[in-house]
Write a protein that binds this DNA or RNA. Sequence first.
DNA 1: ATAGTTGCAAACGTTTTGCAATGGG
DNA 2: CCCATTGCAAAACGTTTGCAACTAT
Lengths: 140, 140
Amino acid sequence: MAEHFYSSEGDALLRAADLRITRPRQAIARVLSEARDHPDADQVLRRARRHDPSISQATAYRTLSVLTESGILRTHTFDGSATRYELAERPHHDHLIDVETGEVREFVSREIEALQARIAAEHGYEIVAHRLELYCRKAG
Amino acid sequence: MAEHFYSSEGDALLRAADLRITRPRQAIARVLSEARDHPDADQVLRRARRHDPSISQATAYRTLSVLTESGILRTHTFDGSATRYELAERPHHDHLIDVETGEVREFVSREIEALQARIAAEHGYEIVAHRLELYCRKAG
DNA sequence: ATAGTTGCAAACGTTTTGCAATGGG
DNA sequence: CCCATTGCAAAACGTTTGCAACTAT
């Protein structure tokens, strides 16, 4: 057990998803729990390989899939480019983007959420997820 | 000029984009001007081939690109799936996406729009554009 | 005439999958 | 032990591109 790394943070993700704890998954989960950005699969793989160089691309994709299905991760697809991942643990929020500076603010509106649910219901649907982005300019 | 089809609707798109009027492009533009859904490149190609079976995939993609760059078309990338196209001229609306079938419904909610404006104002902003997508499943 | 456009096929980047070998519980 | 998990390589997927032939203007 000598040169073994403990990544309780990461392991917690695996346990939450009811996955067997394996070396590749530990490395991947650790990378995710430490990430402060929104890495894509390739970035996750690269970083995970710093901990365990033998990790295959397939395992990275498979682990990301499984963690996403378990609700541990959330994905974003910005404009057709590669899927990016982040921990889903953070509370839900929408984004207000300053089109001039690129600054992003987060907000939640209970009223909007309620209206969304109503609209979905009117169409005979229930909401699985949603995305709301406001592109704004500082008011004159 | 015998069995020639007139697609003034479609041709107008091509002229607006300053493109040479060719048979493949006429078929593609016609399909787009007639579409009531949000077809992806492959669907556009299939439909265009009903008018001109010799159209290649490459031409479909190239025409869609060029029309998009000209501002004639607008694209949507719903959660990692194929890029979908619609005429940019159409009035604003938001989207409800059936996560099981990929079907897209359009909706507008004056209340939500108003709330969005209020939220932006509370942050000292005014809205330039927004995007609202509801990913839904048919209600049990 | 000539620059723009085409079809074909190959290449692309991302993601998925079949398989036999490995390893966690 | 046994089934989940792995690495590998090949395939699948949507999309782009190089090229030589063609065509709208």
